[in-house]
Amino acid sequence: MTRLSHVKPGKKARIVHMGVKGPAGRRYREMGMVRGEIIRVIRVAPLGDPIEIELKGYHLSLRKEEAELIIVKVIG
């Protein structure tokens, strides 16, 4: 288990725990970041932050600060 911010581009991972709280946490949930969801890290922005991920067939970007709070299990 690791933090989403540590997952290398190209890797897939399953969400184990959504640690983002408050309105942002709610927004992530509505965007499909729920426990058990499988996501793929696509790339890191040129300046090192934010990151782009793929889930539910679409692309989403979020900062490492929030990705840090999302616990995932890398599955290949």
Binding site: R27, Y28, Y58, H59, L60, S61, E66
Partner: peptide, 10 residues
């Protein structure tokens, strides 16, 4: 600043 939760549409 508010957390970034931005869709990257095709």
């Amino acid at each position: 600043p508010s957390p970034l939760i931005m869709e990257m549409p095709p």
